[in-house]
């Protein structure tokens, strides 16, 4: 399950590399690759975030799904990988000038937001090892990994601000994110209500 997810998530990267060498990225290949890896990163992060709500919804219908929890980590990690490649291409695009990069980060809100999202991904990646949950303790690990919602929100904002006029992509991403938030809140409230009832 996990290797299949990794293969599925990484095939587009292979295709991107082949597109680059066959000229299929068009007249402005770096920009195209930048946009493509950005969309891939955000898509995988949103997919990763949707696994738990999916499992919980299925559970309410008395369907015990195991695969969502299994692919969650792979989706998140490959998303983070694409975010890293995205930053690398951005650097390549700007000619790796540290001064330009710094001024971009400080002056352009969409870059600030994008870089913040990427930096917030780092602790999540570092605590994605098999023994991380045990080491941190379940409570702390869960709290830390709630950051993934913040990362996705920042990612959507970054996407929104980077687009010139056509907001179709960012709107879809935002709706997905809001739907995920909504499902989470709803499920949480129901669980709490049930707990309260049980306590009475």
């Amino acid at each position: 399950m996990v290797p299949a997810t990794a293969i599925g998530a990484l095939l587009p990267l292979l295709l991107l590399v082949s597109d680059f060498f066959t000229g299929q990225l068009g007249a402005n290949p770096l920009q195209r690759a930048e946009q493509q890896t950005g969309v891939l990163a955000l898509s995988l992060l949103l997919l990763s975030l949707s696994t738990t709500p999916l499992r919980l919804i299925a559970a309410r219908a008395d369907l015990r799904l195991l695969w969502p929890a299994r692919v969650r980590k792979t989706l998140g990690l490959t998303g983070a990988l694409y975010a890293g490649v995205h930053l690398l291409i951005y650097g390549l695009d700007k000619g790796f000038n540290p001064l330009n990069f710094l001024s971009d980060v400080l002056k352009r809100p969409y870059i600030t937001v994008g870089l913040s999202a990427l930096l917030l991904l780092v602790p999540l990646v570092l605590t994605s090892r098999k023994d991380s949950v045990k080491r941190l303790g379940f409570e702390r690990w869960t709290r830390l990994h709630r950051l993934s919602y913040l990362v996705a929100a920042l990612g959507v904002l970054h996407f929104w601000w980077s687009v010139k006029k056509d907001h179709t992509g960012p709107v879809i991403a935002l709706m997905l994110l809001l739907a995920l938030f909504g499902i989470r809140l709803l499920l949480q409230r129901r669980t709490k209500a049930r707990e309260r009832k049980a306590a009475v």
């Binding site: 998530a9 587009p12 295709l15 068009g26 493509q36 891939l40 898509s43 995988l44």
Partner: peptide, 9 residues
Amino acid sequence: LTLVSRRPA
């Protein structure tokens, strides 16, 4: 993923 991210040249 390819469908949402890739644009043919």
